[in-house]
Design a binder for these strands. Structure first.
Lengths: 170, 170
DNA sequence: AACCATACCATCCGAATCGGATTATGCAAC
DNA sequence: GTTGCATAATCCGATTCGGATGGTATGGTT
């Protein structure tokens, strides 16, 4: 029940989501991830089924089944899990980010700027609009983390739109 | 010599680098990647040894050995490789980027903003300085791709510095 | 000539991740 | 009572990760 397990980025995401939500099913995790961090950090939903099981094996989560209906698996933090999450939050992270942008890659390798720009412009305008709407909806009270993250995300999108816009002309 | 092979992101990076450089060894690729796309797209150097071999197996590259010295493996594009690279450049990419930022993740999950900001500020100021220096060094003639990519990268860094700076106070 | 420090260069491998195909389950409408 | 849809979960082969490890040329020192 408590084999030694290495905690990866994925692990900490799962711990973080469960920490915010209480007791949840993998499907709930999938929904939550899609609505929040999915905007800047991708992971296949299959991970959100596999990882909780792995974490339970390491003693970071409890696992039980719904009594009725679908009898889905439900996970919640153990003390160990809560502890691990808290620790992780406190470790400073000097690493820079990785901007996995296929368009940037193609741009670098010589793709046609304007063609690229036209399609990227659409994408990022949409994303920006989405973020701006989210900003209006997000509660003023409640934890500041999501608001701050959204703010940074929005700025990046604005920046990106500006860049592709400038390069879509002449 | 020509099994069917799926071309992944990694494949296209290797094709792109070789396309720019002529005939190179995996070690050369590693150096090139580190100096260029390594700034925004990470991949372990082991990939740059494995992938060319795989591409050669698919008929996209030729593989030969140096006559003297270390007898390193050298790879160059075949017509098929050149073709594949050109095709790839022309396909529009509507996908948005993924911003794999550990600091953003922690921010979202409630880490202390100021602590995070202080250390991130250092990181990104350094990166920004590096890009600005690069900008001065980069040749005005030659392909515009790298210049444009550097420009976008610089803007993102500037943006990021600004964000963390604002959030490092009070 | 033998040494050794230091780049330079290459491979290996277990674990984690990816992404999409596939299957199953409950519910409501017809 | 079967059709259709949204929900929910699992599987699996291929790819990627990241770091440990191990070779090889070069130049300087004794």
């Amino acid at each position: 029940m408590s084999n030694e397990i290495e905690l990866t980025h994925t692990s900490h995401i799962v711990l973080g989501l469960i920490s915010a939500a209480g007791e949840v099913s993998p499907y709930d995790l999938k929904q939550m991830a899609a609505a929040t961090i999915g905007n800047f950090w991708s992971l296949p939903h299959s991970q959100l089924y596999a990882e909780p099981a792995r974490l339970a094996g390491g003693g970071y989560l409890t696992e039980r089944r719904e009594e009725h209906g679908r009898r889905r698996k439900l996970y919640a933090l153990t003390d160990r899990g809560r502890e691990a999450h808290g620790q992780w939050l406190q470790v400073l992270t000097p690493e820079p980010y990785m901007l996995r942008d296929l368009a940037l890659l193609k741009l670098f390798f010589g793709a046609d700027v304007q063609a690229l720009a036209r399609v990227q412009l659409q994408t990022h305008r949409r994303k920006l609009a989405e973020y701006e709407q989210l900003t209006e909806q997000i509660a003023e009270y409640g934890p500041p983390g999501p608001r701050l993250a959204l703010d940074l995300g929005t700025r990046h999108e604005r920046q990106t739109v500006e860049f592709w816009d400038e390069n879509s002309r002449d």
